[in-house]
């Protein structure tokens, strides 16, 4: 498998004399993986992923994206490979139509007109915004604006897409839409990184999870194995999804059960 992200002994702090936010982190991610990054606020999740598109540069160690060391690249260059969807859509929306907003990224990357049109249309379709593309972004409620932000990064067609808390402030329907978007991107072979506090969401889409605490990796394993490690999870105050917790109360049921169907099958097959 191709390694698309490689992090080697990464250390980072926001100021010279300040405490280290990342204290020596190493791992790699292969092309096409879906990885969840979990941990409490302040554990360094956002700081870590900001290294993947060059917003932050390591003070020690290296981050290699698609073979390029981020220390030697500009953000504008790295943003061709890594798309980063910020948590708050209102920190980026500025156009008077959704169509223009979603076209902004690919235009900056100087794609051909034909390619921009294609990519934008695909992104709008995937996020279910095609019907409202000529509307003002701020005429839509917050949770729909979050989809606009997602579309405006997807349209840049990066190999890696980072979702920072995509389900906060989302109701059930929109959450399902986000899950669907990620599954579609996975089909296209994109590498996806998700920061989330929503463990059910992580269980539904991720294969692998990295648990961060105070700037260090506590666990890096399959989602099942991570949810089975009660000790570590408890120390970070994270709770596995309901069905997993129920499974862990029964000896006959696998502690890494993630879905209702898996639970049922173990009872009757």
């Amino acid at each position: 498998m191709d390694e698309i992200i490689k992090v080697k002994n990464l250390e980072f702090s926001y100021s010279l004399e300040g405490t280290k936010v990342l204290k020596g982190i190493s791992f790699s991610i292969n092309k096409g993986e879906i990885v969840g990054i979990i941990g409490q606020n302040g554990s360094g999740k956002t700081t870590l992923v900001k290294h993947f598109n060059g917003l932050l540069k390591p003070i020690k160690g290296d981050v290699i994206i698609n073979g390029k060391n981020t220390k030697e690249e500009e953000i504008s260059e790295l943003s061709k490979t890594t798309g980063y969807i910020f948590q708050n859509p209102d920190d980026q929306i500025f156009n008077n139509s959704i169509l223009k907003e979603v076209s902004f990224g690919p235009k900056n990357l100087k794609f051909t007109k034909k390619r921009i049109k294609e990519l934008v249309e695909k992104a709008l379709k995937l996020t279910g915004l095609s019907a409202v593309k000529n509307k003002q972004p701020y005429d839509l409620p917050y949770n729909k604006r979050k989809l606009i932000a997602i579309a405006s990064i997807i349209s840049m067609d990066g190999e890696i897409i980072i979702f920072d808390e995509p389900t906060t402030g989302q109701d059930y329907l929109n959450r399902e839409i986000v899950i669907n978007i990620i599954k579609e991107l996975k089909k296209k072979g994109k590498t996806i990184i998700v920061i989330s506090h929503d463990m059910e969401f992580i269980a539904k889409i991720c294969e692998r999870a990295i648990v961060l605490k105070e700037g260090r990796i506590l666990l890096d394993d399959s989602v099942q194995k991570v949810f089975m490690n009660k000790k570590v999870l408890e120390s970070t105050k994270l709770k596995p999804p309901q069905i997993t917790r129920l499974a862990q109360k029964f000896k006959r049921i696998y502690d890494g059960t993630l879905t209702v169907e898996e639970f049922f099958n173990q009872m009757y097959k």
Binding site: K50, N53, L55, I75, S76, S79, K80, G83, Y84, F86, D90, D91, Q92, I93, F94, F104, G105, N108, L109, S152, I153, M156
Partner: peptide, 28 residues
């Protein structure tokens, strides 16, 4: 600034481009 830079906005460039780059920063 971080969000727009992540979308490929270039704030370095020529004076004219720099001026244009302020719009996506100021409006949000």
């Amino acid at each position: 600034l971080e969000a727009q830079e992540s979308r490929g906005l270039n704030i370095k460039g020529k004076l004219k481009d720099r001026f244009k780059a302020y719009v996506p920063l100021i409006i949000p």
